[in-house]
Amino acid sequence: MPLPTAYSPNYYSLDDILATQERTPCKFLINVPKMGNLNPSTIEKDLPAGTALELPMWLVLEMSTGRQPIVLPELPKIYKEAYREILEADACAVDLHKFNLYFYELGSYAKRFDRKGDVHQTLLHTFRTRFRQLMDLADNSISDPSVQQRLDTLERRLFKDGYNARTKLNAWLVESGATIEAANMVINHKKRKRLNMEDLMK
């Protein structure tokens, strides 16, 4: 069994790249020549100061640091006051997927734009409150895919860990032998081949 490690993104992490593609609003502080194509609603060649756009997080992070920042970043609306209050009221009832697929990841980056540190508190509070619900979902072992719909990516990963562990435990409690099994990839590979064959024969 491979050593299970917690999610810890690095340069090569696919999920971190996907998370930093999410958009965040920002305002341009200076004129930027020849970058008009960043703004889809105009055909001007240059980008005048004062333009407000929603750009991917990776770009906003690069542009807002340094001695002469090009943009002033703002919090995405899901981390603003109104949404934070919804989370404070009842974090468990919220469909976090609808807020953002990468709620916690994006929030970890976006909270740099919040002077007061409220976003940081909200992220932690939301995670802690929803953890019990997550554990219960994983323990009940219903392989109902729709149950994961309301979770964001971080929670889904934890759910998968918990669900796999619980399935193995249940299998152990019931069975009496350590059967050697076909590898997961092999099973999925065969399933995919069968589905492809069925499609071809239709």
Binding site: P33, M63, I70
Partner: peptide
């Protein structure tokens, strides 16, 4: 006009 910001964006 200073192209520094443009160059920075392209570099990013």
């Amino acid at each position: 006009p200073s192209m520094v910001s443009t160059i920075r964006i392209r570099h990013a």
